[in-house]
Structure formats: structure tokens, C-alpha cells
Simulated scan of single mutants.
Amino acid sequence: MSKDNNPKGPSQRMLRVGELVRHALAAMFARGEVEDEALRGTVVTVPEVRMTPDLKIANAYVMPLGGQHADEVVAALNRHRRFIRGQIAPQLDLKFAPEFRFFVDETFEEADRIDALLRSERVRRDLEDDDKDE
């Protein structure tokens, strides 16, 4: 099941609104509008925003450039989520302003882990054994 608890996957509307929110957050972070010591001098990327089916919660997955101090950056963004909501909500044409929740984006770490696993000696041996069987 996906992180947004929707067994069928996100709807087109959820995807569209998530992408609008992602762009608005990325622009806001690029302008440096959120003032916090943990964010000073840090470039924050927003790879994905997942909306709940009712569009009332925006789960934003973020990563500081270089991946350093990710937990501190996420904590700072969560401290300022009411301010962020107030800045982003007018840009969205929604009935309700979504509540923001920030999380560390771990997709790059997971991809690195899978890549390392695929390059491991054990997997290489298994692949060689499959080639011999053919």
C-alpha cells in the first residue's frame, strides 16, 4: 500500500494538486522565505508531494542538497509549517488550505542501497550461474 493510504493509488486530482504544491514549495524555498537557523545557506529540494484523498494534508518529501542535516531541515520546516501554509494556500485554488507535513525523502538512499546490492559479489555469482544454465 502506498504512503498515502489509498490502495488504488493517487487520483489524477491528487497528483495534479501535489505537483502544484511541490512547485509552490520549491519556489518558496528558492526565495529563502522561511527563516530558520537550520535552513540558512541550505538549498532544499522537493522531489515529491503526496496529497491525501481529501486534499487536506500535503505530505512533502524534501532533501537538502547534498543530503546533509536532513533531519534538522525537516524539523525546521515542520516548525514553520503554519507560516508555509499561509504563504502557499493563496496560490492554490482549493476549498481548504492543506496542512503541511515534511519528511526526509529517502528514495535516493533506497536507490543507492538497491544499486549496491545489485553490484554485490553474491548477485554477480547468481547471474553468472543463470548464464551457465542457458
Rank of each mutant, 00 (worst) to 15 (best):
M1F: 12
E106D: 08
S11T: 14
P53W: 04
L39A: 13
Q12Y: 09
A27K: 10
R85M: 04
M51Q: 03
N59P: 11
A97G: 14
L20N: 14
D131I: 09
R16Y: 04
D131M: 02
P90Y: 13
R122W: 03
H69G: 04
A89E: 00
H80G: 04
D105W: 02
V74I: 11
G67D: 06
K3V: 12
K95H: 07
F103S: 13
G41D: 01
A70T: 10
R122E: 00
S11C: 08
D71H: 12
G66F: 07
N5T: 14
M28R: 08
Q12V: 13
R113N: 13
G66R: 01
A76M: 09
R79W: 01
G9V: 13
L94D: 01
E128N: 15
F103E: 04
E110K: 02
D105K: 03
F102N: 02
D105T: 14
A58W: 01
D71V: 15
F29Y: 05
R31W: 00
V104Q: 11
F103R: 09
P10Y: 09
R119T: 00
E134F: 14
L118D: 07
P90N: 12
F100Y: 09
D133H: 12
T45E: 02
G67Y: 05
G41V: 10
R82I: 07
S120I: 07
K3G: 10
A60F: 13
A27H: 09
R22P: 06
V21Y: 14
A30P: 00
E121H: 15
R40G: 01
H23K: 15
G18H: 06
G18Y: 10
R124V: 01
L118S: 06
E106H: 09
H69V: 08
P90C: 12
Q68W: 05
Q68V: 08
A60K: 09
A38W: 05
R13D: 08
E19A: 15
L77I: 11
L55C: 06
L25D: 00
F83I: 06
N5L: 09
R79V: 01
L77C: 15
T52E: 05
E33C: 00
N6Y: 09
D115A: 15
Q91S: 13
V46S: 00
P53L: 03
G9F: 02
D93F: 12
V123F: 08
E48W: 04
F83H: 06
A58V: 04
H23Q: 11
R81Q: 07
P47H: 02
V43T: 05
R16M: 07
G9D: 00
V73A: 08
M51L: 05
F100R: 09
L20G: 15
A60N: 04
E72H: 14
I57Y: 03
D105H: 10
A75T: 13
D105Q: 03
D93K: 15
P47S: 06
D36I: 14
N59D: 00
A26Q: 05
F100D: 06
